[in-house]
Structures are given as C-alpha cells and as structure tokens.
Design a protein around this nucleic acid. Structure first.
Lengths: 200, 200
DNA sequence: ACCTGAACACCGTTCAAGT
DNA sequence: ACCTGAACACCGTTCAAGT
C-alpha cells in the first residue's frame, strides 16, 4: 500500500541533468530534446517538468555545471610549485583538454549564447579564477587584468578554432600557441621591472 | 495569357538568402525558420524549396557568403603601404569590426558547426588569406604558418569572448589585444634575423 | 507526490494538385 | 515553372486526470 509515500520518484534532477549532458555530447545541442531525455530515463516528457523548469533551464544547469567543472579542472591542472610560466602553460593545456574532452558542453558554456541561457556570473568567475591567479604571479598588478584577458583570448581562440576544424593548413598550432604564451609572458615579466609595453 | 512564361517567379534564390540573413541577425539561428523566411517573402514555406535544397543548405549558403565577405572586408581593411605591423593591427580591427557588425553570421560561420553546415574549404581560405599575407611580411617563411595560426587564435578568441560577453571585469581588453600583437610581432621580427623563438 | 495521455502551437519537409 | 494546401513526423510545454 505504501501509505504516506505513494510513489517514490523513479528519477531525480541530477539524473535528468546527467542524461541531458550525455545526449548533448552525443547529438549536439540540436539533438538535446526533452522527449529524448525522457525516453532514456524510461519516462514521458511531461514528467521532466517536476525536476527542471524547462529546456532552457536544463541548458542553464548544464552550462553552470560545465563552467564550475572547468574551474576545478584548471585548478587541478596547475602544478603548485612550478614556475609562474610553467603554471601558465599548464593552465592553457588544462583549458584545451577540457574543451576536447567535452566539446559540446564547452561550446555551449563559452560560445555565443542567447539570453535564455545566461547563468549567474559566479560560474564564469570560477572558470577564470585559476588563470587570473597564474597571471598575478607574472604581471605587475596594474597589468594583470589586461594580461589575463589577452592570454584567455589566445587560448580560447586556439581551442575554438581547433574544435571548429579551422587549422586545415597543418603546421603545429598547439606548439605555436605555447610559443606565443612564452613570448608574451617574457615581455610581461620584463615589464614588471621596467616600463609598460608599448601599445600599437 | 503569358504564353510560355506562365508565372514569372515572385522570388529568387538571392532574395531567400538575404531574407534568411536578416532573420538570422534579428532572431539568432533558432529564429531562422523556413516558415518565417517564406512569410517575409509573401509566400509559403514549400515554395522555398524551388530555390534552396532545405534549411541546412540555406545555412551553408549563409556561411559561405559570410566567409567570403569577411575575406573581402579584411582586404579592404588592410592599408597597402603601411608597415607590416600596422597592417596586422588593421586586420585584427577589421576582423573584430566584421564580427560586431554581423555577430550571428560570424558565430555561425566561425563557431562550432555540425557536419550538415560545413562548406567548401575555399571560403575559409578566402577569409584567412589576408592574415596569412600580412604575416608573410613579418615572419621568416618557416614560421609563417605557426605565426598566422597564433595570431588568428588571439584575435578570434578576443572577439568570441567579447561577443559572449565574457569580459565582465572591465579593463581594456581591446588595447590588451593590440599590445599582445605588438609584442608577438616584435619577437617574430627579431626571429627573422636571429634564431627561432624558444617553445615552452 | 509523481507520472500519464491528450492537446496546443510550433518545426522541416514531401507531394499531389492547381495555374 | 512556380506556388499551394494537406499531410507527416517531429518539437516544447501545459494540464486535467490517474494512482
């Protein structure tokens, strides 16, 4: 009879999110359909609305989790007692590895997204914190923000183009990325003792 | 009676593409519906299939045109008798301006895209040719490909993050971008006479 | 409390039918 | 040759109904 607890739920919010994430990586954002999530959970689509507000909210949950996970991965990728430059290279590799490990989630979280998918700023801050920290050990304080934004642009652009399959001419783009990091960080380090880097 | 030419077509392929592009920028890729394109052209959705194979083919046409247009814009943005470094900065600005002028088209053309939307490689080559040309004037030949890929990564990452609204901490990210270009190109120029830039 | 089927307003696409 | 309405198989979402 199960008095007082007539139907223990067959699914839960986390299962919905996990299933959605699996579908996202397998079939891309277009393939992420509420009916498909439900089908894999052995349930009908309307049941999902007990656990998530709708498809947009589900996607926001995926994005928030993805950004948090990226932050954690970058922290884990940072060797604590290496040089500042080595930590910078390690963070770049961690960023790239994350993007290659879950490309659809990465594109969803860091790519251009409609208003309906924007999440709280804390998640983005968690993702970018390790980079800011590594830059703090290289650049003088007044240049740290600029340096972090440039380095982020560089690494983000690299992996975005890589995922889009745009490096068709061959070469060694990843080695080129690390070279550019080295050159720029060296200039930052000099600037720490000397004068600001000349613009244009 | 209009013998032999019973019904002059009310629309044409270019009108379909132009309308689709307008919708894309106004409503994003999600809003780009065949029925909406047809509605704006005063016609029903099935009529569009006389001019484009389907939605995916329409999107491919948009992407191909967008890449070609980007290439043209970059050529136009390059001052022919400026220094190699100035041309580099101008191309970066041209790239950014194009992305800000038609962000949805830019994201569609250069962002992560499903197999159904990949276009012939010539269009991508047209888009990247001006950058390769500018790099040729700065870097020694054996380093040109790497240098072009790094600089493209940097500029592409900058504008991608900018479009995604990720530079929330303020600062002057665009100035930082140009600084990084300056520093890197200076190192490339030195390398042209001296030895290769040390990796890692 | 949790799940369902039915329904609504949307899609992309096909196709026989009109002119 | 060009356009149409009707139809098909899909969507996300709502809601009254079941247990």
């Amino acid at each position: 009879m199960l008095l007082g607890m007539p139907h223990p739920s067959r699914i839960n919010r986390q299962a919905v999110i996990d299933t959605a994430r699996a579908i996202l990586e397998e079939a891309g954002p277009e393939g992420l359909a509420m009916r498909e999530v439900a089908r894999r959970l052995g349930v009908r689509a309307p049941s999902l609305y007990e656990y998530v507000e709708g498809r947009d909210a589900l996607i926001r949950a995926l994005i928030a989790a993805g950004l948090d996970e990226l932050g954690t991965a970058l922290v884990a990728a940072t060797p604590p007692d290496a040089s500042a430059l080595d930590r910078m290279h390690a963070i770049a590799d961690g960023y790239i590895d994350f993007a290659l490990r879950c490309p659809a989630l990465f594109s969803l979280a860091l790519g251009p997204c409609p208003d309906a998918h924007v999440v709280d700023a804390v998640h983005g801050e968690r993702a970018s914190a390790p980079l800011l920290e590594a830059v703090a050990a290289i650049a003088p304080e007044e240049r740290q923000l600029n340096a972090a934004q440039s380095l982020w642009s560089l690494v983000h652009g690299y992996v975005t183009l890589e995922l889009a399959g745009q490096f068709r001419l061959g070469g060694t783009p990843r080695a080129a990325l690390h070279e550019m990091i080295t050159v720029y960080c060296a200039a930052l380090g000099e600037a720490a003792e000397e004068k600001p880097i000349p613009a244009v």
